[in-house]
Design a protein around this nucleic acid. Structure first.
Lengths: 107, 107
DNA sequence: TTTATATATTGCAATATTACGATATAATAA
DNA sequence: TTATTATATCGTAATATTGCAATATATAAA
């Protein structure tokens, strides 16, 4: 196959998987870390920073944006990218809920 | 290609990507949610719970275990699985650090 | 209008992931 | 020893992801 059986899982489970997938690649982790450092930047800055070609960076930015982890605002010829705090909140909420449920009753 | 250029990123960036990749599939999210609910269980319990075949569940459990997100203890014929609290802590730490760095200076 | 700059899209090759049937392994029960 | 039970591994087909060269688009500058 290759495709996951998304239809059989809850909407929330699928949404979470999409959020995690967005961060499941070292280049995208690096982009997020860079954005954290500089607050805002344009695509070209990241192309200079990382060892990947411009179309590859553009594609990664698109995936991060589709997942809602970053925002991109058109500003003339350039596009200003920044981290979406709401997405971070979603992650934090999820792990907070997990820790609340966790009973530490291990095998 | 298909392979990410892992060599060009830091060890921490690659490790994080591996952790996130482990949760980037709805079946694995569902397994984690089930484990949170029941604390501990065996592979067969998950096979009954999810709409996936036994080899598929076994493979997902292996991936979660390799990433360090769950632990599995052999107990006779069965293997007892549970969530590894240390992995959850790593995620929490990461998002806490992110929030600390985040300046909310968006475009 | 022409040129330059910034980013996106297309098309494609290499590789990875997902899922499962068939089968192997390993511990216990009869 | 011979089942039985629980899980893992192998092999394979379908699909997804990664990365980039070539090219398209769109804004601004000359």
């Amino acid at each position: 196959m290759g495709a996951s059986k998304s239809d059989f899982f809850t909407e929330q489970q699928n949404e979470l998987a999409i959020l995690f997938k967005a961060l499941s690649n070292p280049a995208r982790v690096a982009i997020i870390e860079y954005l954290l450092k500089v607050d805002t930047c344009i695509c070209g800055d990241i192309v200079k920073e990382l060892p990947l070609a411009q179309p590859t960076i553009s594609q990664h930015l698109k995936e991060l944006k589709n997942a809602g982890i970053i925002k991109g605002n058109v500003d003339g010829t350039t596009i200003c990218y920044c981290i979406n705090p709401e997405a971070l909140q979603k992650f934090e909420d999820y792990f907070f809920q997990m820790r609340k449920q966790l009973q530490n009753k291990c095998c």
